[in-house]
Design a protein around this nucleic acid. Sequence first.
DNA 1: AAGATAAATGACGGATCGTCATTTTTGACG
DNA 2: CGTCAAAAATGACGATCCGTCATTTATCTT
Lengths: 237, 237
Amino acid sequence: MTPRKQSQIAEREAAILEIASDIISREGAHALTMERVLARVDFSKGTLYNHFTCREDLLVAVHAQCFEAHLSYFERGALFRGCPRERFAAAGMGAQIMHELDPRPFQFSLNDTILAVASERWRELFRHYHRETIAVFTGIVRDALARGDLPAGTDPERVTLGVWSLSCGAEDIHESGLLPQRLTAEDFNRLRSQLIETLLDGFGWHPLSSELDYAQARERILREIFPDEARKLGLLR
Amino acid sequence: MTPRKQSQIAEREAAILEIASDIISREGAHALTMERVLARVDFSKGTLYNHFTCREDLLVAVHAQCFEAHLSYFERGALFRGCPRERFAAAGMGAQIMHELDPRPFQFSLNDTILAVASERWRELFRHYHRETIAVFTGIVRDALARGDLPAGTDPERVTLGVWSLSCGAEDIHESGLLPQRLTAEDFNRLRSQLIETLLDGFGWHPLSSELDYAQARERILREIFPDEARKLGLLR
DNA sequence: AAGATAAATGACGGATCGTCATTTTTGACG
DNA sequence: CGTCAAAAATGACGATCCGTCATTTATCTT
């Protein structure tokens, strides 16, 4: 296979994913159909099915890509020079910043049955990024445990699972439109962050949110880790 | 309309909901199609569409029914004679017991777009039970606030939202099969309960889980509130 | 240039959706 | 009971979407 040809195929794949992602962000996952992708593309159905074995496969691929995009932000946040609890918050802020730069509603959880019918290629990529993401957060929790910031015997995976669940669940509920009062995206993100901090307080992770100046920590994180993005969003300078 | 006729229509509706619920619990919501419901019923498509305007409408109706079924258990738990924190736990146990008696995987959150296309009848019924359920929990939180068990100024709705999010999110993640280790339903329920208790500790809701004998509280709740169900499940006597 | 391999095509059968003109049932009333 | 209007039930229909596969086209090898 000539490189020319290879890159053409890769471009096409990227284009499909871009279109699929656009449809999902505009109208939700249920609106993603192969026919609609085809309508916005200049090659045939058979070629589309060479890249993605079925509708679910494409859905998983979009999710995997989204995970990949988030992961780099999580990792940057985890590099913040501060105590583990600040680093954990910084990693979370990474996702929020990314979301504000490119606001695509996104569920990080995929149904079992959807994953099952997807191709091995995309399913494993999705699982890979999922594991990597969990690992970033769990790594920070382990650091906190090593320093004695968390009670000995705390299961690091349980902390991550709790935060992850809370985050996904809040997203779900927000998207269902069933919240008593309608919140702006910004208010909702603040609420979610506060709930996560409350949960971490519940684990006894020091310094507790009452012992930490969050406004200042947030300022430092933005300045030191996400300066360009923060400026672009008008959060800095 | 003669009563004979009316009850026949009501029976039919119940039958449809039962079949739909069965399909969903066996194969997931994606497997619910009008055609498959029709295949298990002895009347025609047009009649089915007299009861439910579209697939999504039926989905919302099933969810509303499930909410209704849970609500009575939540309410029973809330009547437990104990401190608010115990009552909150008792309400949650109600849902678990019901789930074990009739194990149907269930998401309490419905997509915005699904609710939007459903008929007003079922959508409003769903919203009604949703609000009622939230109100049960939020009522207990208010009682705790009134007694000074929670820090003054705590927003009761935020507590409920946090618990609800955590609960739904954990369910999602469990069903995605992405947990590192595979958990039994029982282990998962225990894990979820513990995460919720941790979150409530984070809110500073006294008595904290460390200050309370949970095994004993659980025993009392089963004995006093859910004696029949607990015995049937072999949790008592 | 010819043959072999890989990629692309789109027509097709099948499932499902939701509609609606038509038929059947029901109930009210003389 | 017979008539007739309203209500309920029917199922054929057009439309959308799925995923396949025999065929055509492009690319590579020698």
